[in-house]
Design a binder for these strands. Structure first.
Length: 276
DNA sequence: ATTCGGACCTGAAAGC
DNA sequence: TGCTTTCAGGTCCGAA
């Protein structure tokens, strides 16, 4: 579910509430949620305060004062909710972290159980993740260098988290539409001016999506359970057979191994450049 | 070296 | 109506 803008939205709505709170107890209802750890390490979070929340790509990092960090990935349907403890549990709540002197608690909810939580020493956390640069922080010249030695199709590269961290299926399609580039374009054929268009489109789309607090199509909710509004701004994702808002052509859908790409066949193809 | 399909899960929606 | 199939904001792994 959540890509960079959704995770950023969660972080923003959660930071001010969590920072300064002291962990008091935790509870796993689905032990498989905890990856690469046993529950013993979490005991060390009891009595420790949250000092910082961070996003890295699609990962959520919660740093505690004793140099340990909770590392969460929401995958497709995960939700991180900060809600009153008296709110009834449902069968998809897999983890609860409670805090001293707070009537709110942090709940990890995940219908499909793909999500994960683990705990690492703060200084080592980022090494495990093996992520490319942040799309909103990378300079154009750095961005341009990332393509050196890269092959394959443009959309595949945008989805590769070790290339750039945080872009998923929705925003890859929206970015490519904004940049007027075909998802299947071999990256070796990109022209100089197109790299700049792509870099600008990434910034434009992701910033706007953050401003609208993410895209809620099915499951995404922020930490308070609120939906994001970017759904209304989508121009190609999920819009097969609708008319392109730029040229009026019908939006097409390509399927590859269970995943779909939506694009405008008129706006997003120029010349024959290896696109089938 | 890339790309594709399947696996991990559940439930909503579409298809028949 | 009810049963079956398809599909989903992610990522990993192994086979073509």
């Amino acid at each position: 579910m959540p890509e960079l803008p959704e995770v950023e939205t969660i972080i923003r709505s959660l930071s001010s509430k969590l920072i300064g709170l002291e962990g008091s107890s935790f509870n796993f209802f689905f032990p498989g949620l905890l990856k690469n750890n046993d529950q013993d390490i979490l005991q060390k979070l009891k009595g420790k305060k949250v000092i910082h929340l961070r996003r890295r790509g699609k990962w959520i990092l919660i740093d505690f004062e004793n140099n340990l960090s909770l590392v969460c990935h929401l995958k497709m349907t995960g939700q991180l909710l900060f809600i009153p403890s008296e709110r009834p549990l449902d069968k998809h709540t897999h983890f609860i972290l409670s805090f001293k002197d707070s009537r709110y608690e942090l709940r990890f909810r995940d219908v499909r159980k793909f999500g994960s939580i683990s705990c690492y020493p703060t200084p080592e956390v980022l090494k495990f993740l093996n992520l490319g640069p942040e799309p909103l922080r990378v300079s154009f010249s750095h961005f341009r260098k990332l393509f050196q030695g890269r092959r394959g199709r443009l959309k595949n590269l945008l989805l590769n988290q070790s290339f750039l961290a945080g872009i998923g299926n929705i925003y890859a399609d929206e970015i490519l539409f904004e940049a007027k580039l075909h998802p299947g374009l071999p990256v070796s054929l990109l022209e100089e001016e197109e790299f700049l268009r792509l870099w600008k489109a990434i910034r434009f789309i992701l910033r706007m999506a953050i401003e609208y607090r993410g895209t809620s199509i099915r499951d995404f909710r922020d930490a308070e359970g609120q939906e994001g509004d970017f759904r209304n701004r989508l121009r190609v994702y999920g819009k097969e057979s609708e008319l392109c808002s730029r040229c009026g052509e019908e939006i097409e859908r390509l399927r590859k191994g269970g995943r779909s790409s939506f694009f405008c066949p008129q706006c997003q193809v120029e010349k024959n450049r290896g696109i089938d």
